[in-house]
Write a protein that binds this DNA or RNA. Structure first.
Lengths: 350, 350
DNA sequence: GTCCTCCGTGAGAGCGCTCTCACGCTCATT
DNA sequence: AATGAGCGTGAGAGCGCTCTCACGGAGGAC
């Protein structure tokens, strides 16, 4: 094997070698490295010296083999295309997750299955127990993954409320509350005919934002009107198409709540082309507070979400579940914040 | 241990068990699983049956322990904040990398060190040989990582041309050529006083795009003018600040080449506020062709980059290096494409 | 003084896999 | 007919680590 291996990278020191240098047994070095309290101060110091001197770093594979823990967490992103490329949601979420994980010395394994075959391979990989826990992001209603890994008994946490009632912990932003506050803001500005361009009906974020929209209307004593509701796909093109339909059906619209900034940007372009002034004729509010919100003209009022925090919280929940210290299912909902900009400014003169 | 373990997750079948079911030795099962040709058809089939029946999946830790290969590749993203959150560069790159890796059954380990302490831990982790190879993304000039891992002898590939002459393979988009084509486009439209808002001077993308700008001017017989060049930080705010300085120093500007779309968006806002019409008074071209480019008004002419392809190519190069089949250093430069939109339309009347 | 407990340490098994080597068989070669 | 090459298969070592168990010595209870 020494001969056959083309690489022969220098292998680091082993426990055995550290033990020899420190003049103790392998077991004692292991105890020191893993912070066991049952080691005398003197021995501990001499082991630590040897560790530093040899630059010893534990071999994770060997450790995994016996502990049956991989020391890694999978993050699975199953997003066809749209949202993934169009807003900085994922980088921010990943950063939050990464931060939450690194403190505990867990590695983040990123899985982005594209094809159904990929998804199948991913499911097999995950169910085989190669990771200690799983973070599921951007779940659609029909995703088979949660069931598969639940059956395999691997702890997992979902980002965003899962639509089907999986017995799973999840972390979500308050989509319903955020949408409600956006629409309340429009109502307070004197708008009366408020349409919404919703998200996909198979995603929690889509469903909940629509619910929040309806909540606000109901509170104001208005009844929901199907001709004012249309589903988009979170993309700019989708937003534009939806806006056109909306405008054709209801030319009397004086406000639009779009469930994403990109869709709002698409809607703005269409409204503009139709000769509507924003915000004078039609006020518009988006969702996400993405960078796009400050490049539209007028700049876009939007609902800001604590994405990094969401990632961090997901990591925290999952690690607790992996430790077994918290077998309970938890649902964490994080608050959103309405960021007011020009697109919804000014009171309409009735 | 059986008692101490709070989880006791069902462990999958082992090689040994498959061997027993198939009536062969462990070694033979290993050969079948690893696709060795030295197994007779009959035996192979009976092993495959047993594998399927037991749902056998190899234990990666055990395999790693003996092969000294982890089966995973690290992707290190060291980006302070700005770019990471503001454009979809990273998701796209990650997707490209992921695609390039998954075909080879390599796991993608994502590392996003934030603090200097994180970076140190990351370096230690990587140098310890826990991954088979490393992909370095968004490298700044002063990053100590390349040296560290080069010294440890771990194969790595850099995304974007590294500024200091690391003896490293890299994949880059043709920043210089892309910038040149953008500026040539402005020249062809009759613009004569073309400013540039560049990227950070410690990043290859920043330096190269500036060089491309100068190339185009030189080709047109114009000499570079320091009062027309200013460095930004790839963010919208940075672009706006730069544009203000530029406008104060050279009110006669009739075109701007911004090294990122976000900076271009910032510049547009400032130009607008200063009463300049776009593109009539000042034409503007961005870089990245990000979603922002189609939300600005007018929509932004920009340089499109093959980001997914870049990620794929990085994965490909790295895997070749890991295999040892390609110890040569490679430099791959991918072509860009100018996407013409309204912000640079129309010929200026001299 | 004897017995027992407790604590720090070492010995050794074994996690699941790959890889080398040896072995026995079948065929082609002389 | 004898020899050897080649191929498919099995036996067994060992990767680096953790964990259980055993052991010896110190200290307290009787």
């Amino acid at each position: 094997m020494t001969i056959a291996d083309p690489q022969a990278r220098p292998r680091g020191a082993t426990l055995e070698e550290v033990a020899k240098v420190a003049g103790v047994s392998r077991a004692t070095v292991s105890r020191v490295v893993n912070g066991s309290p049952r080691v005398s101060g003197e021995v501990r110091r001499s082991v630590e010296t040897a560790v530093t001197q040899l630059g010893y770093v534990p071999n994770r594979a060997a450790r995994s083999l016996v502990t049956r823990r991989s020391g890694s967490i999978a993050v699975v992103i199953t997003e066809p295309t749209g949202r993934l490329f169009s807003d900085p949601f994922f980088p921010r979420l990943l950063r939050g997750i990464s931060g939450g994980l690194s403190a505990r010395d867990q590695q983040l394994i990123l899985l982005m299955p594209e094809s159904p075959a990929d998804t199948e391979r991913t499911a097999t990989y995950l169910a085989a127990g190669h990771v200690d826990g799983i973070l599921l992001v951007s779940l659609h209603g029909d995703d088979p993954l949660p069931d598969r890994i639940a059956r395999a008994g691997i702890p997992f946490v979902v980002g965003g409320r899962p639509l089907r009632g999986h017995a799973a912990s999840f972390v979500d932003v308050d989509n319903r509350g955020g949408a409600r506050s956006a629409v309340e803001h429009l109502l307070a500005a004197g708008r009366t005919t408020i349409a919404t361009i919703g998200g996909p009906g198979d995603m929690g974020a889509g469903v909940d934002r629509l619910a929040g929209y309806r909540d606000a209307l109901a509170d104001a004593g208005l009844t929901a009107d199907p001709s004012l509701e249309i589903a988009g796909d979170f993309t700019q093109g989708g937003g534009a198409a939806a806006m056109e339909q909306l405008l054709a059906a209801r030319p009397d619209i004086d406000a639009v709540f779009a469930a994403s900034d990109l869709m709002a940007a698409g809607a703005i372009a269409v409204l503009e082309a139709a000769g509507r002034r924003i915000p004078q004729d039609v006020a518009i509010v988006g969702y996400d507070d993405s960078p796009v919100a400050s490049t539209t003209r007028p700049r876009l009022t939007s609902v800001r979400q604590p994405i990094e925090e969401m990632g961090q919280e997901m990591a925290r929940l999952l690690l607790a579940a992996v430790d077994g210290s918290d077998p309970v299912q938890r649902r964490v909902i994080l608050a959103t914040e309405l960021v007011r900009r020009a697109s919804s400014a000014g009171r309409r003169v009735p």
